[in-house]
Design a protein around this nucleic acid. Sequence first.
DNA 1: CTGAAAGCGCTTACAG
DNA 2: CTGAAAGCGCTTACAG
Lengths: 364, 364
Amino acid sequence: MQNSRNEKDGEAPKTVRIVDIALMAGVSTATVDRVIHNRGKVSAENLARIQAVLEQVDYRPNLIARSLASGRRYVVAVVMPRFSAGEYWADFDAGIVRAEAEARRYNVTIRRFFFDQYDRASFEGLLADLREAAFDAVVLATLFAERVIPFTRELDERGIPYVFVDSDLPTCRRLAYFGTSSFDAGVVAARLLFERLDPGSDIVVGNILHRGEGGSNQCRERERGFREYLRQHDYRGTMHGLSLRLDDEAYNARLLDELFARHPSIGGAVTFNSTCHILAGYLAARRRTSVRLVGYDVIDRNRRMLADGVVTALVAQRPEVQGYRGVMSLCGWLVEGLQPAEVNNLPIDILLKENISYYTNNII
Amino acid sequence: MQNSRNEKDGEAPKTVRIVDIALMAGVSTATVDRVIHNRGKVSAENLARIQAVLEQVDYRPNLIARSLASGRRYVVAVVMPRFSAGEYWADFDAGIVRAEAEARRYNVTIRRFFFDQYDRASFEGLLADLREAAFDAVVLATLFAERVIPFTRELDERGIPYVFVDSDLPTCRRLAYFGTSSFDAGVVAARLLFERLDPGSDIVVGNILHRGEGGSNQCRERERGFREYLRQHDYRGTMHGLSLRLDDEAYNARLLDELFARHPSIGGAVTFNSTCHILAGYLAARRRTSVRLVGYDVIDRNRRMLADGVVTALVAQRPEVQGYRGVMSLCGWLVEGLQPAEVNNLPIDILLKENISYYTNNII
DNA sequence: CTGAAAGCGCTTACAG
DNA sequence: CTGAAAGCGCTTACAG
């Protein structure tokens, strides 16, 4: 818009194009293209000549032109939990949306496949769909680890690259992982909970009921990290697990009332998933302001409870970044053959009342 | 690379091109182009016809083709402090480097202009250079606020857009600001320092000596926020300011020894810039393990002191993101006329011993 | 194995 | 005010 300035006549722009290389090697651009992309069908002589030229000129392909000319199209599948607005996976999806817009420029389209994160059968059904579907790469949320692992064997056979998000499964041949170290995210929660807690206090651990046994891999790892921290810091209290229901406030309140009645020494509470707003709602209703509560993920309801001072701290994992980078790493691999780093442990973010209001917009 | 799949013959790809619009409006592509870019010189009749078509088709320009065809070149200047490896501004530069690579695809090049952040005269000298230099937009680090403000008047006159990083100066006509709320970053530091501190403890505030009066705008704002938090939380101690030297350990130790001798009740320490490793080094050497220390920015030396437990907490501001987004917002504006959000308050990150090891790679 | 030619979608002189 | 034509750098059938 402003002061557009073409390269001053002084020094030449000097960017080497395929046609320049073709001229230098005395061949056509098609032959140079074959060498650059290892498409074969080039005489040994020409191959050598072109390679010699390539070595001395530092050729950097113009990706824009390449993309425009090739018109190759790819589909990236994203396998993730179904969500409503304000839930954790909505934030993840925001990253997908952003990647989608960018990927379009490279002729890559996204196709989402949803399952119910609290119902293992729904995931299994989805896997069946996936076997029929056509896609060139896939982003996999690894909640049902025991089902994901065998499925990746099939992908390996089909030659379809995949990346993991949410929590890592290092035994699989994933192209990459994007997410936090779940174990250390558990350690961080413990540190935050114990900043001012007596080592003898009891703790409530809130869970959400699943259908089909085995909660998420990530929650299990977080709990391991949490317990490890306690062990190393002379914790002497008791942890009381409690299976809550997502949409049954009365039920939850009954359970909690009972627990607090039996164990008045409860001084802390934690959830290893994004639902700490359930415990927070209860604590606020009962005015149990002395109970410290730590949870995960900055979803709206948690954010509000933190701002209000009911939640002591939230630990967060940049879901938008997971979605965005998961997709973009696959784009880079498909379109340009770029190999991403294998394990991408994202920062473990700590949110307090004082810094929560700026925690948005984590993508770029 | 894998299973390339062209759009299945089923539904048409259906992306609307300029030539399609031209056909629908019964004009040439050149005329459509004129309308899209408001270049004028189009009859009222054609204008209306083309606009009508545009409204019904949701035209999305192929930016790749546009960029390839136009070949327009821009220069973005980045005005920032000179730095050595491991210093704060090196992280900022990492963001610039990344933006540089991406911007190249859009024919945008970066030109850096360095000044000495501890010497106001060097900044003034740089401004003189800037008056001679040719560039289309500029990213400005606002450390010397009193000098930046009049300079932006000149930029306004020249019609050159600018964005601020580091700290905001809301009175200027900046296209955008990328950085934290310095005030609230001060509040957060206070909260972290006081998590376990007695409200009567004294505090050391470490500063770095400047040439040319007036430290950075950002440090002043942080201190304001810090003091405000203390005020609201019944702080009754005394804050002792101390001007330290960057590379004179012996000098600093002498000053600190003296201060601690006179005020044994010192229980906390803070610096409002990235040099808390200076205080940390002193505390470690003197084994004053009971003094809590909070500082800013995850530079190598601070990171180590945090991991070792000498620093209690670090507050960080994503310098790479500031650099990256500063440049990219200008690219978007120059190349595509995209207006960025005016104030982009980045998250205020909290780093403890337990989460520091994952704090890297903040760009995407 | 090789190259001339067309084309990706857009922009840009240029002639009218 | 308008449009035909060339060109950005690369890829892709196609004919040889």
